[in-house]
């Protein structure tokens, strides 16, 4: 049987007379294709995870390491954290910081990017600063974050903000320059005011690319939460990792923290991808 790409097979059925319509395949064949999709979509990744865990376990046992935890010990560590009520507390603490840092970055980055994309003088004026600040690692800002915000939640929020604001700004700016000129001309032809043009054309035309930018930025935000929580806070998954290492070489808890960050990152990515399936933006992703 042909290896139909998943996205094609699940693409929603268009009421289009001219688009290639699926041949009226016998129900048996369609069922077979569905079960094959299920296999490659859900069963296959689970098998890979199981295999990776087995390999990890075997490697630890073969090496005879006493410090590096086996998967079962990490699971036990997660269970221990859950029983102590620390797991949810740390997840909530990290989520709180990422939410605030990221939200602030969206509130600043999207308007700034749209502004720079629309007015070339604004891009000329601000782009050098943006491009110079962008490559500075958020970790380099740690001393300044402590200087400005001291020992408070504001310091990690600030670092997460810094890490995500630039990708959001740059992708929003690019989204505006990628608008097909014909849309703007058509809108001008219909006599739209500047505000209407912005609301009815610029925003919807840039939305797909902005969402992609947000997805990348959210990944980066989680990436820096560890570094951000290394400083002066006493909760959060990043804090858990550093604290478990410093207070008794509890590598099972170190890895438990890493696993939790990875798992939450995966869930967030799935959620943001859901946004890309909305009808109003789906046109912007050619392969879906």
């Amino acid at each position: 049987m042909s290896a139909t790409p998943v996205h094609e097979a699940v693409a929603h059925a268009a009421p289009d007379a001219a688009a290639p319509t699926a041949p009226a395949a016998p129900a048996r064949l369609a069922g077979e294709r569905r079960s094959q999709q299920f296999l490659s979509r859900y069963v296959l990744p689970v098998l890979v995870v199981v295999f990776a865990l087995a390999a990890w376990d075997a490697a630890v046992r073969l090496s005879g390491s006493t410090l590096f935890p086996r998967p079962i010990e990490v699971a036990a560590g997660i269970g221990e954290l859950a029983r102590q009520g620390l797991l949810l507390k740390y997840i909530a603490a990290s989520r709180f910081r990422v939410t605030w840092g990221f939200t602030l970055a969206v509130l600043v980055g999207v308007p700034l990017g749209l502004f720079m994309g629309w007015f070339s003088w604004a891009a000329n004026a601000l782009n050098p600063i943006v491009q110079a600040l962008r490559p500075i690692s958020p970790i380099a800002w740690i001393p300044i974050a402590i200087l400005w915000f001291g020992i408070s939640d504001a310091a990690p929020v600030f670092l997460i903000f810094l890490a995500s604001v630039f990708p959001i700004t740059v992708s929003s700016m690019a989204a505006v320059s990628n608008i097909q000129p014909v849309y703007v001309r058509a809108a001008r032809n219909f006599g739209l005011s500047r505000v209407q043009l912005f609301r009815r054309v610029i925003v919807p035309a840039t939305l797909p690319q902005i969402i992609t930018g947000l997805r990348i930025a959210l990944g980066i935000a989680w990436l820096v939460v560890v570094a951000a929580e290394m400083i002066a806070v006493n909760s959060g998954l990043g804090y858990l990792i550093i604290d478990a290492r410093n207070a008794g070489k509890r590598y099972d808890l170190v890895v438990a923290g890493m696993v939790m960050i990875g798992a939450i990152g995966l869930i967030l990515d799935i959620l943001v991808r859901r946004l890309e399936r909305f009808d109003a933006v789906r046109w912007g992703y050619s392969r879906r």
Partner: peptide, 10 residues
């Protein structure tokens, strides 16, 4: 329908 679901003529 959305434009991407239509043919060029439509």
């Amino acid at each position: 329908a959305y434009p991407r679901e239509l043919s060029g003529g439509m």
